[in-house]
Amino acid sequence: MATQSQSQQAQAIKRISLGVDWLDYALQGGVPRGNWLLVTGEPGTGKSILTIQSAGANVNAMPVVYVSTETRFKDVVLQASQFGIDLGDAVSLADVLAGKVKDARTNLVVIDLFGLAREYRELLRAGEEEGGKRRAQSPLSMEVVISAIERAYEALGISEEGKITRDVLVIIDSLAPMWAHAPAMARLITYSLRQRLYRSNVTVIMTNQFAPTTGETFGFGAEHIADAIIHMWMEEPEARKGIERWLIIKKARLTNHYRRALRYEIEPGRGLVLLEPSIEELKSS
């Protein structure tokens, strides 16, 4: 049970909603502004759904940059609609770079595989003009992802001389493809990512794959740049003869978070729904 002083301190911190009320309760109102949240879990646990819910919850309040390293822009929008999530007038970075969007009057830019491929070609072209220097190894390399995010900042009109002029939410779903070619480099890549993107007014939500066979996230190092970690898993489907999903907040800076596992389900039109404990029990903890 939090003391009155702790509650007052928690209220003084500006927080970013995850779009899931019960998860916000478990984090004293959401993710502290400027923090980096890492969501880990095996396929099927709802990591991408959580990030889409987070985007939908904030798109009317602040600019959102959504990086999807595994799906297309249309798939992100379609999945959002299946869970009743309104992404507003979202645009894809690929369309912005292709000149199809002249005036991006939106709070949400989605960077998908096509956007990353276009930015990769732009970086290669720039490298050739600089004497053949290669600036990126693949469309999914860290250099391309960061450059694409900076392009999205420009499209949103929130970048001036390298400074971010407004609070912004950056979502990266997922980190794993960025070091798939060299897992041993994961820690260096994630540290470089944080160094390049960190700003006190930039809040970041990242996902990463978790391998049940090893009990570790793919690519050692992502946990070390995270201010908070939410881990999602399934309870032995073969033994249970069904799917039972759980999550736990493993750490959260600036937050006296809920410390027990939370059981949830994924429901069409609603997204992540808490099964136990009850909302009332969670609020009173």
Results as ranks from 00 to 15, higher is better:
residue 97 L to R: 15
residue 39 V to P: 02
residue 53 Q to I: 00
residue 96 V to H: 03
residue 92 S to Q: 08
residue 98 A to R: 15
residue 94 A to M: 13
residue 74 K to R: 15
residue 118 R to P: 01
residue 37 L to N: 11
residue 141 S to C: 13
residue 71 T to R: 12
residue 107 N to E: 09
residue 99 G to N: 13
residue 41 G to E: 03
residue 138 S to P: 04
residue 44 G to N: 03
residue 103 D to S: 15
residue 61 A to Y: 05
residue 84 G to K: 07
residue 147 S to K: 13
residue 78 L to C: 04
residue 110 V to N: 07
residue 123 L to A: 05
residue 133 K to G: 02
residue 87 L to E: 10
residue 59 V to K: 13
residue 58 N to S: 03
residue 129 E to P: 02
residue 107 N to R: 13
residue 93 L to P: 04
residue 115 G to S: 12
residue 72 R to T: 15
residue 36 W to H: 10
residue 131 G to F: 08
residue 102 K to C: 04
residue 93 L to M: 10
residue 79 Q to H: 06
residue 114 F to P: 01
residue 57 A to I: 01
residue 76 V to S: 07
residue 54 S to N: 05
residue 70 E to G: 08
residue 71 T to V: 14
residue 128 E to C: 02
residue 142 M to T: 05
residue 98 A to K: 15
residue 144 V to F: 07
residue 125 R to T: 13
residue 49 I to M: 06
residue 89 D to H: 13
residue 108 L to S: 06
residue 57 A to C: 03
residue 118 R to F: 13
residue 125 R to K: 12
residue 87 L to G: 05
residue 131 G to T: 07
residue 130 E to K: 14
residue 109 V to D: 10
residue 58 N to C: 02
residue 46 G to I: 00
residue 119 E to V: 11
residue 102 K to I: 12
residue 95 D to M: 14
residue 139 P to R: 09
residue 130 E to L: 14
residue 92 S to H: 07
residue 42 E to F: 01
residue 109 V to P: 07
residue 63 P to N: 02
residue 131 G to N: 05
residue 102 K to P: 00
residue 63 P to E: 03
residue 80 A to G: 14
residue 64 V to R: 02
residue 58 N to A: 01
residue 147 S to F: 04
residue 50 L to G: 00
residue 43 P to D: 07
residue 131 G to V: 08
residue 142 M to R: 14
residue 40 T to C: 08
residue 57 A to G: 03
residue 89 D to I: 05
residue 142 M to G: 09
residue 49 I to E: 01
residue 73 F to M: 08
residue 136 A to E: 02
residue 134 R to D: 05
residue 69 T to Q: 10
residue 118 R to L: 15
residue 145 V to M: 12
residue 143 E to M: 03
residue 78 L to E: 15
residue 69 T to D: 10
residue 70 E to V: 14
residue 57 A to F: 06
residue 95 D to W: 14
residue 44 G to S: 05
residue 100 K to D: 13
residue 82 Q to W: 13
residue 132 G to K: 06
residue 84 G to F: 04
residue 83 F to P: 03
residue 81 S to F: 08
residue 86 D to R: 05
residue 134 R to I: 15
residue 128 E to Q: 12
residue 32 P to A: 05
residue 130 E to H: 09
